[in-house]
């Protein structure tokens, strides 16, 4: 009996934690927006995004958020103008939620592409679309996620800023990299 218990414990220890159900992960990293104007290529970076993941038998749920004011483009005037355009006083956060039904965490280290259906809330307006996230699992407790997807400013009811009477492009590219860590139960 004692030998059986020991064997069960050994097998249990050998199974990667990632393979178990009901896992919670959290992460931090860097997210950028890329905005194009005839005269400018603007990259605004935030190092303050928060990310949470929940994986269970049904699949994956992910949520990320960052303060609009945390994005810095290297030009204080432009950043202040961005806060005005995005009505940051009224909508201080950009929030992304995503789901991947049927998702299972890989049992071995490696990179997989996770098709997420995401809901992006920006300027108080939510837009839903699919996003591919590259998930690199380093070990049972650590992973990296990289992503890049376009957003439409007008879809979020954002009046496109103009410079020299020329408006910025409607497409806004969101990209980033997040380091994830499995939360201890």
């Amino acid at each position: 009996m004692r030998a059986m218990v020991a064997a069960v414990l050994m097998v249990g220890a050998a199974v990667p934690a990632a393979a178990s159900a009901d896992a919670r992960w959290s992460g931090k990293g860097q997210v950028e927006y890329v905005l194009e104007h005839k005269f400018h290529h603007v990259v605004g970076t935030s190092t303050e995004p928060e990310v949470r993941l929940a994986v269970d038998d049904a699949g994956l749920k992910v949520m990320a958020r960052a303060a609009v004011s945390s994005f810095k483009s290297g030009n204080g005037n432009r950043d202040a103008h961005a806060l005005e355009v995005l009505d940051a006083a009224h909508f201080p956060l950009v929030v992304v939620k995503g789901v991947a039904p049927g998702f299972k965490l890989p049992e071995t280290p490696g990179t997989i592409h996770v098709p997420l259906q995401v809901e992006v809330e920006l300027h108080g307006v939510t837009v839903t679309h699919p996003v591919d996230v590259a998930l690199h699992v380093r070990d049972a407790g650590h992973a990296d996620a990289t992503f890049e997807f376009p957003e439409s400013l007008t879809a979020h009811h954002i009046e496109r800023p103009s410079l020299m009477m020329i408006q910025v492009d409607d497409a806004l590219v969101i990209r980033g990299r997040v380091e994830l860590e499995r939360a201890t139960p």
């Binding site: 949470r52 949520m63 939620k97 939510t126 839903t128």
Partner: peptide, 19 residues
């Protein structure tokens, strides 16, 4: 909940807050 729709069509479809 078709993809490509805006808030009016998807309200409540992802009604969770992991934070």
């Amino acid at each position: 909940t078709d993809a490509g729709s805006t808030s009016s069509a998807t309200a409540g479809s992802m009604d969770f807050d992991l934070f």
